[in-house]
Simulated assay, not measured.
Amino acid sequence: MNAPARARGAAVQVKAPPLLYGLSLAAALAMHQWVLPLPLSLPGLTYAGVVLVVAGLGLGLSGVVTVLAHRTTLAPHLPVSRLVVAGPYRVSRNPMYTGLSLALVGAGLCAGSWWPLIVAPLCMLATYRWVIRAEEAYLLDRFGADYQRYRAQVRRWL
């Protein structure tokens, strides 16, 4: 018998989603360094990359701070105490994952490699399939109509 939504967390397949992004970046940089370099070089690319990394990490960190300020958990597999819709959650249902995605693309620009840009959509798809789908099903079960309204008003990524 399934525990009520209040007592359980989301049935995610990856309990630490930031690892998906870190491993994706490591794999992309390894591909560039040791397998098949795919250089990317345009004037100002490093600066654009730094801006994306800083913006992405800032967005992700603001999501973390907002969740902690609402005294609920960051771990998707643990039960949440409330639906957070403030701060960056007003513009993205997943500001932490969106921020990590931006940082991953920015890191690719900084590294001057196409590989992180190629890997980023795959990482986002994996995050959706292995984490977000289960989180959204859990939040719908846990918060019902409140989550349905929120989901109708706020985009998943940006």
Rank of each mutant, 00 (worst) to 15 (best):
C110G: 05
R93I: 02
V50L: 12
L78E: 09
M31L: 13
R156T: 01
L40S: 03
V91F: 12
P17T: 00
V67E: 15
A126E: 03
L125K: 02
G9H: 06
V85W: 05
P37Y: 06
A10C: 12
G60S: 04
L109R: 02
L74S: 01
A75M: 13
V119K: 00
Y21C: 02
Q148A: 14
A107K: 00
M31K: 00
W130I: 02
A75G: 06
L139Q: 09
R149Q: 13
R6D: 14
L57S: 11
P17D: 08
Y150P: 00
A7S: 13
T72P: 07
K15E: 14
A152R: 14
Y138Q: 11
D141S: 13
L25Q: 06
G63F: 00
S113C: 04
Y21L: 00
A5N: 12
Y89Q: 07
E135K: 02
G112L: 06
P121N: 06
L102S: 11
W157K: 03
W130N: 02
D146L: 01
V85K: 13
R155D: 01
A5L: 15
G63R: 12
G63E: 09
G87T: 07
S24T: 05
P39K: 03
V67C: 07
L23K: 09
A137R: 11
V65Y: 12
R142D: 07
G22P: 12
V119Q: 02
Y89A: 04
A11D: 15
L19K: 11
A27K: 10
G58H: 11
V12H: 01
P43H: 05
H77I: 02
L74I: 09
L59S: 07
T72R: 14
V54N: 15
P43D: 14
V67F: 12
R90S: 04
T66Q: 10
L78C: 02
Y89V: 00
M124K: 06
V67R: 06
V65K: 15
P116G: 08
A7W: 13
L23H: 02
K15M: 09
Y21F: 15
W115T: 04
R155K: 06
G99P: 12
G99W: 15
V50C: 10
L29Q: 04
S24G: 13
V154P: 07
V131Q: 01
P18T: 12
P79G: 15
G56E: 03
I132T: 06
Y47N: 05
A75Y: 04
G87Y: 04
R82M: 12
L52M: 11
V12N: 00
P18I: 05
V131C: 06
D141P: 03
T98R: 03
Q33R: 11
L109T: 01
R129G: 08
A48S: 10
R82C: 14
T73D: 10
R71Y: 08
